[in-house]
Design a protein around this nucleic acid. Structure first.
Lengths: 137, 137
DNA sequence: TCACGTGTACCATACCGCCTAGTACGCATG
DNA sequence: CATGCGTACTAGGCGGTATGGTACACGTGA
């Protein structure tokens, strides 16, 4: 578990996880935005800097940044760096909406197999909203 | 998209999907149990039969069945076949509970990036419960 | 102007999960 | 004993992921 704390931001990567490193970075940045840890316009660590901090390859960081930009979450300015997008406009993408529905369906099925009632799952969801986005959501 | 319909059960597999085939089988069987399409004690297709129907390798089906048995969802009886477990007793597995929480967290973050409000997500969850387990959940 | 930091684009290599193919074994049923 | 069943094992191919290295294009600031 390698950690990076530069200027208040905290990113950590688990090399041993089955989840790809570039996806770990993506998820943490998006979660950080929701939490408010990353503010619109904030500068992210440079590709080389973050790769050094996490002792991973620059290409891996670059891949994470490219995917995030493709999703519209961040933007890159050549020669300047990578930044959290300002005034993010969500678009009702049918594909991503379907994926979200599938993901949520999986949650419901898993909850059943863990013995969680509908009420308990709703509570879990409420707790997450409280924990993640006090003001934002 | 290959489909199998034997005795009322319907399983389909998308070879081109990035999701592993054995996981597709696992998810569909678990979803089928929640829906009630599969009843406790029901016999699943044999490894060879299902592999033939889906035109995939028997080992792939076997892997799906083994994982499902490890999760306690199904049980195999040597020489007889594979069956949906009767009287399934959910166990409060802390690991799986943590994974469920992570999955739900991802849902919340994705929902934010799709512009879905907390209310809309809760509605989506309610719809899924209605669609999946009318009586069971 | 020029050095520097930035993201980007290649290429080659290695590793690992997934899937296939084939063969063989142990067990329960009829 | 023949059949159907799950299981185990080996070998190989394929694609995604990550690494290592090099090179290029662009914007900034001295």
């Amino acid at each position: 578990m390698i950690q990076h704390n530069g200027g208040g931001i905290v990113l950590q990567v688990d090399i041993k996880s089955s989840k790809p490193i570039y996806k770990q970075i993506m998820d943490q940045i998006k979660e950080g935005v929701v939490k408010g840890v990353f503010q619109p316009g904030d500068k992210l660590p440079s590709v080389r800097e973050l790769s050094t901090m996490l002792t991973i390859n620059p290409n891996t960081v670059s891949k994470a940044y490219q995917e995030l930009e493709r999703e519209g979450a961040i933007e890159t300015r050549r020669g300047r760096g990578t930044f959290i997008v300002e005034n993010y406009k969500p678009q009702a993408d049918p594909d991503r909406l379907g994926q979200l529905n599938d993901l949520l369906k999986k949650v419901v099925v898993e909850a059943y197999y863990l013995g969680l009632s509908k009420k308990e799952l709703k509570q879990m969801l409420a707790d997450l909203y409280a924990k993640l986005g006090g003001a934002r959501l």
